[in-house]
Simulated scan of single mutants.
Amino acid sequence: MLNGLYVMDPNRFDDVYGPQARAAIERHLAIPSPPLTADRLTPDVLADLQVLVTGWGAPRLDAELLAAAPKLSLVLYGAGSIRPLVTPEMWARGVRVTSAAIANATPVAEFALSQILYALKHGWRYVLAARAAAAPAARGPEIGAYGAVVGLVSLGATGLATARLLAHHDLVVQAYDPYADPAQAGRLGVRLVGLAELFATSDVVSLHAPLTPETRGIVGAGLLESMKPDATLINTARGGLVDEAALVDVLGRRTDLFAVLDVTDPEPPVTGSPLFTMPNIVVTPHVAGSLGHERRRHGQAMADELARYVAGEPLLYEITESGLARRA
């Protein structure tokens, strides 16, 4: 039996580590206390710690914490990006870390799929038009889903998950990702194209890229202007990918275009932002990712990783220092 601790935001603990996941984890870990917050980690609490079970609100694994936890060998991170907790000292110590980021791809992909199909039916357009007029909206030339072209920006975890869901529909799927595996894309029926071609030829463009210095503002006026008539932009990734001033300008002039923004920059938008009042933009409050008990996928993924660790098997979701650097 290994020694473990639950350490994370108490408001999210039960959402992530539900009864099933906790039972599976506690078959392998002796956990001497209720869940703790990072500010309650004292040297005596950390002295025998071997496995840290965490998520949102995780402690940063700096030199001071590592010195107090000499036996720590594994971190189970039931959330997405591990950047808030990792440090050079952690990597140097050889502490292994595995993340539930892949589990979070599922609800994002489900949300993206729903918005892609809804966009091809002009769903939001009719809702907003009817509300503004207090009368039935006039029907327009809907695209429909059959044979429509959907463009995905990035084939990372969420992009791939979205592509897998789209494969069940009669759509043409293309993607821009300079790091994508062409063979993997081919198996999913996804055609790899350049970014300019993707925007110019897609009926719906769905963003799934990470936010890096290279991708910040990547969707600017030129790409937006190039979009097909009646096309829709969906962003469930990061608000900073889109130049929002350009978005407001272009969609203010091209009222045939539409945008569904689940993320913005800043987030939430400032009070009075035109994003809330423009007739061809809808903003949702960052709901695409795991919510409520959807987060229990994260906890179950970490319970499964712990079972593999104890059995001496490879970890499916382990993140290495070199792998994290490549993602950046």
Score class of each variant (00 low, 15 high):
Val219Ala: 00
Ala185Trp: 01
Ala112Asp: 11
Ala133Cys: 11
Val149Gln: 12
Arg131Asp: 08
Leu113Thr: 10
Phe111Val: 02
Thr236Gln: 04
Tyr118Ile: 13
Ala200Thr: 06
Pro136Glu: 01
Asp170Tyr: 06
Ala246Cys: 05
Leu165Trp: 07
Ala137Thr: 09
Gly222Thr: 10
Glu214Tyr: 05
Ala183Leu: 14
Tyr179Asp: 10
Thr232Asp: 07
His208Phe: 00
Gly194Glu: 11
Arg131Thr: 08
Glu110Ile: 04
Lys228Gly: 05
Asp177Gly: 15
Ile116Pro: 04
Lys121Cys: 10
Val149His: 14
Leu188Ala: 07
Val250Asp: 00
Gly151Asn: 03
Trp124Met: 14
Leu195Tyr: 10
Val219Gln: 00
Thr255Leu: 11
Tyr126Met: 03
Asp203Ser: 06
Ile234Ser: 11
Thr255Pro: 15
Ile218Pro: 05
Glu214Cys: 14
Glu244Met: 12
Asp249Glu: 13
His168Asn: 11
His168Val: 15
Thr232Ile: 07
Val153Glu: 00
Leu166Gly: 03
Ile143Gln: 02
Arg139His: 12
Ala200Ser: 13
Leu171Phe: 04
Ser114Gly: 12
Arg191Ile: 09
Tyr146Leu: 15
Tyr146Ala: 15
His208Asp: 07
Tyr176Asn: 03
Ala130Gln: 09
Gly189His: 05
Arg191Thr: 13
Leu171Val: 03
Ala237Glu: 00
Leu165Val: 07
Arg139Val: 13
Val173Ile: 14
Arg254Met: 04
Leu113Cys: 11
Tyr179Lys: 11
Pro213Thr: 08
Leu192Gly: 04
Asp243Ile: 05
Leu224Gln: 08
Ala209Gly: 04
Arg238Phe: 12
Arg125Val: 14
Leu152Tyr: 02
Glu110Asn: 01
Ala245Val: 10
Arg191Tyr: 07
Asn235Ala: 05
Asp243Cys: 07
Gly239Cys: 03
His168Asp: 12
Glu110Lys: 04
Gln184Cys: 14
Ala132Asp: 05
Gly147Leu: 05
Leu257Ala: 01
Leu166Val: 02
Gly189Gln: 09
